[in-house]
Design a protein around this nucleic acid. Structure first.
Lengths: 221, 221
DNA sequence: GACAAACGCGAGTGGTCGCTCGCATTCTGG
DNA sequence: CCAGAATGCGAGCGACCACTCGCGTTTGTC
């Protein structure tokens, strides 16, 4: 056996093929957005892209692979463009600022790529996508936990940090859903509300000098 | 036309039939819980109940009707057993107590009826279920808004109250998901965490004398 | 221009699922 | 006890869907 490649290298493609793939992924994104993954039919995706079902299968081995590829590209772009949203920050940074910046970045990404939300929240998504979702979820959790560690008192038990991180991520997702459901000024208001929830939740946990709650007036008469 | 009934009265049933219906609904609950609504097949439900597909259709006109009936019974039980969870409370009640009681009741209901969560969060549930979900959602929202009104300052704009209610419900759902994902002591810890999030979020909004945050020590040295 | 490979098509295939139908069995009222 | 209704069955029907196949078209290469 002179040359056995277990992994099939991606077939040699012409420029036309690359364009078709992008076009198909875009169409898939649109269909997934409106109907969700399971309800989306490959024929519908092909129709949306203006090609035949056979053409679709020239570039993707099956329906799952479309979602996988889409998900991978999204995660990649998320890491590239917004990865630093959760980069370690100077612990002297006010809590409100740190939370606000992170929330703004992730909200912006989700507003620009509504498919992301659809793919990451479908309950009946197939195995590989779920894996990717879990991986991203775990990454975010550990990043958040890491950030929290730099804000929280040093004697905070690890289990508490994890729980707080889970809570922060969960609240963020809930807020994201509300933000995406509104537009314009209302959307902005919900973004602010989400920041308030997170800041007020975390403020009592951080050191007393860093964590003055958002709504507290500086002076009391 | 002596007697035209647009609504077909539910066929006359024998006791056996009622038992079968309950049995089928229970089986459906189990299947919906594990696979979700769309992925659940009527044959699987019938098999779980130990009857033939034909028997299933003796009692339910279609798959959707099963979910409808199940949802209606759950909502009914929710209203009966836990309806007072959001009943108007004495505004003198401490915020923590009011939030704690409401959260405890709803968490308990969801722990006892895991189907409820499955049915109410499936994204591709058919029209009528979605209606019911929306109705329940709206009811909860107005109840929460009502309760908030009795705590919040009287000059709070209505839009703000609505937004806060949406946020509270969203945060609750996120917390519920985390609670259901854990067991034993961890579950209890998440329940407490959820209460903390809500109390700290709402505390600054209510009158200053009522809303001392949960974690704030009474004295500072 | 010639050859091969990539591209493109769309009717067709196998499988699943919601649901039906004809017939057997059990129950209820008179 | 008996007629009729309610209950129960399970093979099968029609629709839909992921996916394939054979064949025609375009593109890159020499």
């Amino acid at each position: 056996m002179p040359d056995h490649q277990e992994k099939e290298q991606p077939r040699r493609r012409q420029a036309r093929g690359e364009r078709r793939m992008a076009q198909l992924l875009e169409a898939a994104a649109a269909v997934f957005c409106t109907t969700g993954y399971t309800a989306a039919s490959t024929n519908a995706i092909a129709r949306e892209a203006g090609v035949s079902p056979g053409t679709l299968y020239q570039f993707f081995p099956n329906k799952e692979a479309i979602a996988i590829e889409l998900g991978e590209r999204l995660v990649h772009e998320l890491r590239d463009t917004y990865g630093e949203a959760l980069a370690p920050v100077d612990p002297a940074t006010p809590l409100e600022e740190a939370v606000g910046a992170a929330v703004d970045r992730f909200i912006a990404f989700n507003c620009n790529h509504p498919v992301f939300f659809a793919l990451m929240h479908g309950p009946d998504i197939p195995g590989r996508i779920a894996e990717e979702h879990d991986a991203l979820h775990a990454t975010l959790l550990s990043r958040i936990a890491e950030l929290l560690s730099s804000f929280l008192p040093e004697d905070t038990p690890g289990a508490d940090v994890t729980r707080t991180a889970q809570m922060v991520l969960g609240v963020y997702k809930a807020g994201l859903e509300l933000v995406l459901a509104h537009e314009g000024a209302e959307r902005e208001a919900y973004v602010q509300e989400l920041k308030d929830v997170l800041v007020r939740y975390l403020a009592p946990l951080v050191g007393p000098r860093l964590g003055r709650p958002a709504g507290t007036p500086a002076t009391t008469d």
